[in-house]
Amino acid sequence: MDIDLITQVLFAAIKTGTPLLFIALGEAICEKTGVLNLGQEGMMLMGAVVGFMAAYATGNAGMGIIGAMLIGMLMSLIFGFLVLHLGANQVATGLALTIFGTGLSAFIGASVVGHTITGFQPLNIPLLSEIPVLGKVLFSHDPLVYLAIVLAILIGFVANKTRVGLTIKAVGENPHAANAIGIKVLKVRYLAVMFGGAMAGLGGAYMSLVYTPMWVENMTAGRGWIALALVVFASWRIGNIVLGAYLFGLASIMHLVLQGMGWSISPNLLAMLPYVATIVVMVIIGADKYKEKLLAPRSLGKPFDPRQMA
């Protein structure tokens, strides 16, 4: 493998990992408060289509980002209402959100299939982008790649070093105790669910505004699900999520690498790689029962009903 190929592979791995990073960061915060939202794929698809349509209509990719985050939040509110207010099963509601989002995005996106837009241009960071190899791999990306990293640092700081982070942790570990000391459990969970929705929308917008850039039905191809696996893989730690997202990004483009190296395997078989990698990761995490029990937010997936407190 020559250095040019390695440079391109690492560059593409970061790009491919970026939407996963957005979604996983949002879902990690959501899960830290004890809410498991399996609707990531649906919110992501809605973010992708609405982001694309907003950018197409206004000619401004920035508007696309805003639209995508708003629709992600709106979608997450449906989930939040059912799960938090009505105490519906989180797994079933998340699945419903994904099925709904998949259908609705195909429905409203039918009119813009085949259109193209100008997405974000690469932002070469002065001086740093001129470093050989590293400059190309790290410092000549589109602005959203940097945004993802900045957000990761911010979220990591808030989750680990601030009062907000402690509140989130308290609600996720023991909602009854949190309620007893005056924390509004449902409010915290609502905010976390909406944050997750906005981030999933952003991840979707990355797909349709930067990665491809266009809208195709079902274009996220299971990335929302892979991001869910990524959160568990990272043991709900923000630093691990960043690392894991780029690793998954690398796994997702391995088929291009293998083809580039002259392997003559069917592209359809190679396209299975990210999904196989996800299963392998699930096996590795699950095998260590002690670890998962210790690290998962203790109230994850369990409803909290203030009505039963009275």
């Binding site: 999904y275 096996v283 029962k289």
Partner: peptide
């Protein structure tokens, strides 16, 4: 098998196997 033997998350493994089955069929 992955669930009973390695405690793997069934939701995620079954979803991933849906995608894998689809690519297998297309192949």
């Amino acid at each position: 098998y992955l669930k009973t033997k390695f405690n793997s998350n069934l939701i995620l493994t079954t979803i991933m196997l849906n995608y894998i089955a689809l690519y297998l069929l297309i192949w």
